[in-house]
Design a protein around this nucleic acid. Sequence first.
DNA 1: GCAAAATGTGATAAACCCTCGTATTTTGTG
DNA 2: CACAAAATACGAGGGTTTATCACATTTTGC
Lengths: 214, 214
Amino acid sequence: MEGRIAAKAEQDGAVAAPRRAPSQQRSRERVERMLAAASALIAEQGSDAMRMGEVAERAGVSIGSLYQFFPDKRAIVWALAERRTAEGQACIAAALKDVGDAEGLRQAFSGLVDIYYGLFLAEPVMRDIWSGTQADKALRELELADSRANAEFLVAALKRLRPKADPAELEATALLVWQMGEAAMRLAISVDREEGDRLVAAYKRMALRELGDG
Amino acid sequence: MEGRIAAKAEQDGAVAAPRRAPSQQRSRERVERMLAAASALIAEQGSDAMRMGEVAERAGVSIGSLYQFFPDKRAIVWALAERRTAEGQACIAAALKDVGDAEGLRQAFSGLVDIYYGLFLAEPVMRDIWSGTQADKALRELELADSRANAEFLVAALKRLRPKADPAELEATALLVWQMGEAAMRLAISVDREEGDRLVAAYKRMALRELGDG
DNA sequence: GCAAAATGTGATAAACCCTCGTATTTTGTG
DNA sequence: CACAAAATACGAGGGTTTATCACATTTTGC
């Protein structure tokens, strides 16, 4: 009834919950198709250029169906972003859970950086999703929460290695290391491959040094 | 004639040149008012929520006048961003130009970080401008060019201090230090002040350590 | 087999960006 | 000053997009 007003009202709040969670198999499959279509379109042109009509068409559903499960455009991007963060967190938790000594931390962290760099290179969606990030408050908060969660794993590992360090200090370090990693990745994939590799290597060196000693 | 098509066509190109540079004093003043209005609106709600009609109204001009000097919405944001980068580069160049020894570099860099943090805290516009950054190719390139330019000053200083180091390595380090600084600032101003200060301090420590030795 | 819930549809309203024809003001020149 | 050309100012309207809603169809529970 009032076009963009609803989205505007949401703009400084959280993302609205799905209007209705798909309960039947048929609709669950359709929702998957919608997300897949959105993901592909974002990878092609960026989330800003993604058109709801195009998502619907590519998913083989009507525009109405799209809005049945996603309250607005941002909710689609948010849903994709949330999936990625969940996958990422699981991966990170697994890698850092059993770190016992400094060398183990080095190994685990180094491996994680490589994996993430690979993901960024392979899936432009990630960059684009996190790019819209800052402009959208809900996504910004999701990213921050994600960074905090990931940093927490690092903090846990660090606490085991340096029981005497100031916790607040460790948290700041871990959060910063994480956030900088994402910045480094974004930078790395926006330049040519050779320079990108050098940048990631430099980041890794810096981060490891920071994690290596108090 | 075709609404958003034109803007879409520009989307993957550079920002179009101002349709017409203001040559009379009257129009120059009006353009200033437009930019000021845009800046205020961006600070209030973000560049995405900024409405062209609102900019025109607040600047006391008509929509038509707005489009006489700015080919599209992005061009306004771009113009603001360009000013900031120019100011920033001048400031950085001045601070790093005469750095002769390691201690001088520490001092100069430390001061720069403080100044930038102050700017980020005082002017939310900066964050918002750089936030839309990733979504907009032209802005992304402006930011990269800016980072490279700023990094160049660091590289120049570093080369004087470590003549034997690999130039490519130095460039990567400097670019990374710079880009990470911006990421750290964005992070810092999105959490409470106390944590923000801690994060900036941690960044400064990391960066200084990285700049301190090869 | 049937009512209720879930799902599917697309014309349409509302809001936005930007253009264009036209009116007004300033500049340049004799 | 007069007058033409250039610069500037204006805002209604075109076209695009997001999101809604009343109604049609399918599935579920019993």
